[in-house]
């Protein structure tokens, strides 16, 4: 593998929300900026660029991760999921998104995409989470608007609905 030179743009190939995409990146380009500016996927937000606020959280190969603490060039061949990939169809929201809407889980919505990506990954593996576990997952995110209570309610409601659907299936 050749050494990628600083200051030059290099082609990258990866999967974004199930679709193969490619784009150019300098070695130092952060994944958050790559998604937003190079791929135009502005659903992922940026609130601190030092890994604390969680606004930039995406899923990398299925696991929630900070896009601001990841270089775009590290993502060659990776599968990335962002909030744009959550809804099953353009005119439908996912169960999680629906629950956020119903329970006022968002106000300004700036923290929401990151939180959705964390919860989506978590709920996939934990069918019946308790409140404490959810609080722990959420503690990787800062929300300044809601005080978390409505987010927690939305997450619990979504978990219940997902569990029910899984049971029905």
């Amino acid at each position: 593998m050749p050494r990628l030179k600083a200051g030059q743009r290099h082609w990258l190939h990866l999967t974004l929300n199930g679709k193969a995409v490619e784009g150019e990146a300098e070695p130092r380009l952060l994944l958050s900026d790559f998604l937003r500016y190079e791929l135009g996927a502005t659903g992922t937000h940026v609130g601190c660029e030092h890994g604390v606020c969680g606004a930039c959280t995406v899923q990398i190969d299925g696991a929630p991760a900070r896009a601001c603490l990841t270089l775009a060039v590290q993502m060659e061949g990776a599968a990335i999921r962002t909030v744009e990939g959550l809804a099953p169809a353009p005119d439908r929201l996912s169960i999680l998104q629906e629950a956020f809407r119903e329970h006022h889980g968002l106000q300004c919505g700036f923290c929401t995409p990151g939180i959705l990506m964390s919860l989506d990954a978590f709920l996939r593996e934990h069918r019946r989470p308790n409140e404490a576990a959810l609080r722990e997952v959420l503690s990787g995110h800062l929300c300044r608007c809601t005080g978390y209570a409505p987010i927690l309610r939305a997450a619990l409601a979504a978990a219940e609905r997902l569990a029910k659907e899984a049971g029905d299936a």
Binding site: K5, P27, E49, L71
Partner: peptide
């Protein structure tokens, strides 16, 4: 708040690294 420039090497083997 963006990194200063650097080169990047994706090492495939220990020797390379």
């Amino acid at each position: 708040m963006k990194p200063a420039p650097f080169d990047y090497l994706r090492a495939e083997t220990l020797e390379e690294a």
